[in-house]
Nucleic acid binder design. Structure first.
Lengths: 345, 345
DNA sequence: CAGCTTTGAACAAACGATTGTTCAAAAGAA
DNA sequence: TTCTTTTGAACAATCGTTTGTTCAAAGCTG
């Protein structure tokens, strides 16, 4: 028995097929399928077209449509790293929001530094209607990168003085919350592992840390702060520098630096949380993988993505959405790395 | 002084612009710019066209091109999760290889389970010429999902009996390597935290574990193996089950289960690596964040992505590339979680 | 110098949609 | 009954490329 030669791979069904089968003109079919309101169509005709399209499983060719309309219903998201819980979840949020609004998301991942060319390529080749951009680069670098953008864009997780719409997390409030938690546990000597010097988020967290201290009636002591950056090594380095100050608790700006800090504490023979508590900002699965499991303040990173996407799409549709306030932190996830301050001061 | 009203946003320069400026027909310009060989063009004319295109910064509109040629020079990659070092680095590899071959990569991330619809949408709408797919779903599910694919595809990190091209890592060899390392340190009671029961990779690793044992002259003891799956909780659960067997070393199938296991060991008061060694498969930054830093066997995940992309693109170009052998593991990264077997048996 | 090749490039028809415009038939007005 | 409106849909031009075909001029051949 011979097998058919793999049925003519269902030669993509086009609008012309639908129109022909329904016995109408393509223009009519197009209008009905897109739900265009400016043109009246007899109910009966409309139904016929819809039914045929359904039966034939018609799917518009986005290339043809995009060519004609100069819109792709696709927004791009440019992130410096994929395996970073913050960006991964922002992507998820953006994807969901975009889908809800009838857009697709084109994820573009580039090494930091190459952001500029990516933006240029994406926006010059009509691939996307707008861009969501997250960047770890300096203000000046980012600013020039963005000049290449030929499409509207929204910044994520950072702000660029005098420019663009952006959606950020309220890291300051998050840090404040973390300090409050520590203070409530009786800690007075709370250290801070800060992020990159000069960074927007780093500054926010630092200020939140000071806010928290003040709210708890604790004097700010600059010798309890060290810059750790965003690597485990940085966390280790900073924690080592802070050890002589004998803090009873540490607020790390990120999960990664918290991990580095904990390594140093273990090596120093300190017990967590009996001798010293550790808390990190942002929540991700890795927090539960550390030992002890890290207490964190959850940040609405997914929401950040969805808000950014919504904002962008709104402005693509001609609205001029207002800037949005920093997104407040989520819950404090209490795991095992924080506990009451040790007794003997 | 009045500022110009943002120069007519450099109305996208088209091929027609280039042709007109160079004083030739569009067809000629097109052929020259695409380097088509079938048509002779005077050197002088060619240069002129090239120069004009350069000056005008002409960039072909991929929509128009795609519409005409029915090819997009884009391949899609479907992954179940973004924040997973394995997939993230496979994406990076695929992206690099694709770029090298003149293709772009469309990253599509979907919740497991939605793979089918993603594949369907991507391949039915002419967005991609081919697909790279990674899936965590069962064979049967994946198989039906793939029936929706209207374009060629290559599987990553798994094999599907009787189907498709796929690129996998040699996990078996990796597990063997890990056991050899442990055996060389004098360990005889080596436990194994296996992956999901029935999973392809899980089986491979398990067999590699047995291979390694045999090579070291150690008898296989089924009571030293527990299924941990791919979560920290699974790792904890399995490690607890294995504790009574008093292993002196543990081979975890993944970084995540290794982390779970270490948590349990800490809680049990065991010192790592003095009392018990732990080694995990795959390497990623998180390995260095654990305490103690985890010894791992590096796997060529990035290479997996680039090989898969290359394979796919080759077959898109009409070649029928041969299946490729499992990619051998990379180096064993010795950190602090492994050490000599404890003295007293 | 007439006829045949080669060269080098222009012509023109798609690709699959969208959308401004035109138009016949039906309905309503005078 | 004739003229004007309204309805419902067909016509046709485009979007920016690619590519099969045609064709004039130049170069050869004998």
């Amino acid at each position: 028995m011979m097998k058919a030669k793999a049925a003519p791979p269902s030669a993509r069904v086009t609008l012309a097929d639908v129109a022909r089968t329904a016995g109408v003109d393509m223009s009519t079919a197009s209008r009905v399928l897109r739900g265009e309101a400016t043109q009246r169509v007899r109910e009966e005709t409309r139904d016929r077209i819809l039914k045929v399209a359904e039966e034939l499983q018609y799917l518009a060719n986005p290339l043809a449509r995009g060519l004609r309309t100069a819109r792709t219903s696709t927004i791009g998201i440019v992130v410096p790293q994929l395996d970073n819980p913050v960006f991964a979840s922002a992507i998820r949020g953006a994807e969901l929001a975009a889908a809800r609004l009838g857009y697709s998301l084109l994820i573009s991942h580039r090494e930091p530094g190459a952001t500029g060319t990516t933006i240029a390529k994406l926006s010059q080749t009509n691939r996307v209607d707008g861009l969501l951009v997250a960047s770890l680069d300096d203000d000046e670098v980012l600013r020039t990168d963005l000049t290449a953008a030929r499409v509207p864009y929204v910044l994520m997780n950072r702000v660029l003085p005098g420019a663009a719409l952006s959606v950020v997390l309220d890291s300051r409030a998050a840090a404040r919350l973390a300090v409050a938690h520590l203070a409530a546990l009786g800690h007075r000597r709370i250290a801070h592992l800060a992020g990159r010097e000069g960074g927007f988020n780093a500054k926010e967290r630092w200020e939140g840390y000071r806010d928290g201290l003040k709210a708890a009636g604790i004097a700010y002591d600059a010798s309890l702060v060290a810059v750790a950056g965003y690597t485990a090594e940085g966390g280790m380095w900073a924690m080592r520098a802070l050890l002589p100050q004998r803090p009873t608790a540490v607020l790390a700006a990120t999960l990664v630096s918290a991990a580095g800090a904990m390594t140093v504490l273990h090596e120093a023979g300190l017990r967590i949380p009996e001798d010293i508590s550790v808390i990190g900002l942002h929540d991700a699965p890795v927090a539960g993988m550390l030992y002890p499991a890290l207490t964190t303040v959850m940040m609405p990173t997914e929401e950040m993505g969805s808000v950014a996407a919504t904002l962008l799409i709104r402005s693509l549709n001609g609205e001029s959405p207002a800037a949005v306030a920093p997104l407040p932190p989520g819950a404090l996830i209490s795991r095992n790395s924080t506990g009451p301050a040790p007794h003997g001061r």
